[in-house]
Design a protein around this nucleic acid. Structure first.
Lengths: 209, 209
DNA sequence: GAAATAATTGAACGTTCGTTTTATTCCTTC
DNA sequence: GAAGGAATAAAACGAACGTTCAATTATTTC
């Protein structure tokens, strides 16, 4: 047997990517075998090597694709400079939406870094740093102009990113909670966390007992 | 050859646990082989099976040990009821200290859940839920007595846990930052996040522009 | 409709995996 | 100092791993 009727390289490659993200997110990169992946795509294992020279090439392809899509998505919604609270809200809202929509891809990027070679690992970390730098800048400028009250912008950036990325660990849409509702609550928590008062909220004054 | 001079079952078992935590945290459960682990311990692979019937038994042993130690550590520092802000501070401080001290063990527990069988997975999740319930209770009671201002105690609990567990991702002691300094900043962020005013801080009033 | 190219199969390669078996040596007890 | 259990080594098991290769069929090109 050989080429099958209706076979199309572009469709096969896309199917490999999709099946790989789902399988790796569920079972982990090391636990997923090329034969298992091929079966999910509906193809023999040897066919995978037409599109990805090695298993690690496939993983790296998935990860770079994810990071570039994340950076692109922020670039399309990023507000102009000034108004740090508005920029922070835009960052958080976009981050949550992006990651909820790509839960499996996010899990792969967060869990499988250690399966990359040194060079590829540092390439991914470079992209990640470029993205996180955006948040650090917002926090630093907001602290300088008095919009925020924070102790350390780098530490705060890590805290916020871990908090808002963690949504994908417990949140499943289609339940009693929508993405918008979750985003709204996380926005409120983030704004309090950085010592800002939200535009749409009443000012609360706490008195010492 | 056979039994080596000075060999001791208890020491070997402890050495296996320690080597396994380090190797699995670094390379992942699936990527670590029994031969690699045995070499790290300084023993042949077959010797491991005297202490752990299967590779998964070893993983499960490490995970339950970690969770039980975590619950124990909270039980020893847990303050009496009432005074929700003090209880929350104690929870956060203990959580950060525990996890920083056991970075590798924490990584194993967070990353390798998918390598457990169904029954063992749910046993670990049960322990985890018991621990997280402590935080949810503090938040709920604090919201009821007016100490905190939060939207949803379950969601807030997840946000806080992910934020404070995330410390181990970026923090390395022995640098310019001590555990106590990091804990102090995270305590401040947590208290603002739940809408509380810390005892030791001045009350800040934000004015609308 | 023949030639060129694209897509895939089926079988095989050597290696490594988790685990088992058997035999051997060390250590403790009396 | 003999006996018996504890701790390990050495070798082997079948299965599964990532990957390669030659052969074969589908599609496109002219």
């Amino acid at each position: 047997m050989a080429r099958t009727a209706g076979s199309d390289g572009q469709k096969t490659e896309a199917a490999i990517r999709e099946a790989a993200v789902n399988l790796i997110a569920r079972h982990g990169y090391e636990a997923v075998t090329m034969r298992q992946l091929a079966a999910e795509v509906g193809v023999q294992a040897a066919a995978l090597y037409r599109y990805f020279p090695t298993k690690e090439d496939l993983l790296y392809d998935l990860m770079t694709g994810h990071m570039e899509a994340l950076i692109d998505s922020w670039n399309t919604v990023r507000p102009p400079h000034g108004d740090c609270p508005a920029r922070l809200e835009a960052f958080v809202a976009n981050h949550i939406r992006f990651h909820v929509e790509r839960r499996h891809s996010t899990h792969v990027n967060n869990m499988e870094l250690r399966s990359l070679s040194r060079d590829r690992l540092s390439a991914i970390l470079k992209l990640r740093n470029r993205y996180e730098k955006e948040l650090r800048t917002i926090l630093r400028e907001g602290a300088e102009d008095g919009s925020f009250l924070i102790e350390d912008s780098a530490m705060t950036a890590m805290a916020i990113i871990q908090m808002i990325t963690g949504v994908i660990v417990w949140f499943r849409p289609d339940e009693r909670l929508s993405v918008d509702e979750v985003t709204e609550t996380y926005l409120a928590m983030t704004m309090r966390l950085v010592g800002a008062v939200r535009h749409s909220e009443k000012t609360h004054v706490f008195e010492r007992a």
